[in-house]
Amino acid sequence: MKCVTAGEAARFACTARRNNSLSSSGRLLVFGFVFAVCMGIALAFTVLLGAWMILPFAGAEMLVLYLAFHHVGRHAADYERIAMEGDSLAIEVRDGGHVRRFSLNRQWAQVVCAGDGSRLALRSHGRELEIGIHMNGEQRLALGSALKRELKRELRSIG
């Protein structure tokens, strides 16, 4: 989680990314290694012994591994960004290839936070949007407090 409270474009901005313990270069390296070993074995059997039927199975397996890593890669860049921009509280959520944007009037927005940090949501006009999906309980509590503080400050400045 990375939050700033005095940015240029936004007064308050917070970005949370999903946990990825494998970098994209690491993914490439692992796939390359496994691909080289598996296809090397299959090709060796094909060329040296004529046992070519191992090759299609190795190919199919590598395809499944590629799809698995591709799926992981697509979601590696998932994030959630909350920013106060002008009169609105903007929330941007990237999930796989899709980016969804929500905008709330910051004078009406309320922060709903469970006491143990298990759930954090923004409420406006009777509807709720859950946020902090990529955060742990402590981080949700911290974000909830920061958002409440910022919204309160905004209301005070209007008053």
């Binding site: 598996c38 074995i41 299959a42 046992a51 299609p56 190795a58 397996e61």
Partner: peptide, 25 residues
Amino acid sequence: LIAVMPVLAGAVTMLLTDRHFGTNF
């Protein structure tokens, strides 16, 4: 497992084709 399972799959498939499809591996 990832390295050797295709080898087993290939081996038993060759057995199967030797048994039923006229190959002579």
